[in-house]
Design a protein around this nucleic acid. Sequence first.
DNA 1: TGCCCCCTGCAG
DNA 2: CTGCAGGGGGCA
Length: 323
Amino acid sequence: MPELPEVETVVRGLSRHIVGQKIKQVKILSARSTLGFTPAKRQGLRGASIKNITRRGKGIIVSLAKQPATARSAGGSDLSLLIHLKMTGQLIYIPHSRHAELVSASKTKILKQVRGDKLEKGRLNYGHPDKNFIETMPSRHTRVWFELSKGNLYFNDQRRFGWVKLTPTAEVPNDKFFSNLGMEPFDKNFTPAFLYSAIQRRPKSNIKTIILDQSLVTGIGNIYSDEALFYAGIKPTRLGKSITKADTTKLVSAIKKVLEKGIKYMGTSVNTHRTPEGAMGQMQNYLVAYDRKDLPCRKRCGSTIKKIRLNGRGTHYCPICQK
DNA sequence: TGCCCCCTGCAG
DNA sequence: CTGCAGGGGGCA
């Protein structure tokens, strides 16, 4: 699912719901979705409390504070949970207070709406006719199940590309994934001058590939790169050496604009993205390029959006408005 | 710096 | 059935 706006939506939602709660137990339902859950670290996890939740690029950092008793006896550093949702990851939080209600609501809806052959017990609403429908958790795609003091947090991931890593907080800066990330798009240093000089270093790459490079600027993925290039009026296939300073100025504002818009609408739910409450984002209703193959250009230029393949990624653009 | 791959499910 | 999907790691 997730690019910066989707991850930011998840982080903000979780921050509201689970900061301050204690971790009572962690159940790993899919070992390959986890890293670093050694017996020693798992011991340190029990009773730890959730201090804060932050985003870096498309990655999530859940910082924990040790349980006082463990801190006294075991020593060692505080732990962090590092989470990447990759293509289909979800983090769904269901407070104890809402669980029974959801189970009962889901039974009613199952009887009313779901074709028998489509129903699989405990499945999230992926593919369900009612897009706001949540079945009971854990679902068949739940990979890690966190029992917290006031509710349950489920890491769901249909394709199992995502991961949950357990790492000492002091080691997070050295993490393979996080240490390779470039500039945050909302950092004050993400300027046209910065992007322009980076683009100059890659004269033979196309501009879409350049802005997808997470080691340069982090958080832009396939949806928001197409969106930003549309607003900037730049064809995704343009080579780095052809990009002017004026293009770069437009592109930097377009990137910030589309990411802000994505956050405002709580992300794009063309597929599996959900907020921690299980609701869909709404940004799919405001896309101008991505997922609009053969639909009219929203600038009313009279053309339709074309879809091509660029470095193996589906790429959408307006042949008239983007030069 | 591009390609294949990881995996699962859906649309055509 | 084939191809494709919000990502990114490893490999020429």
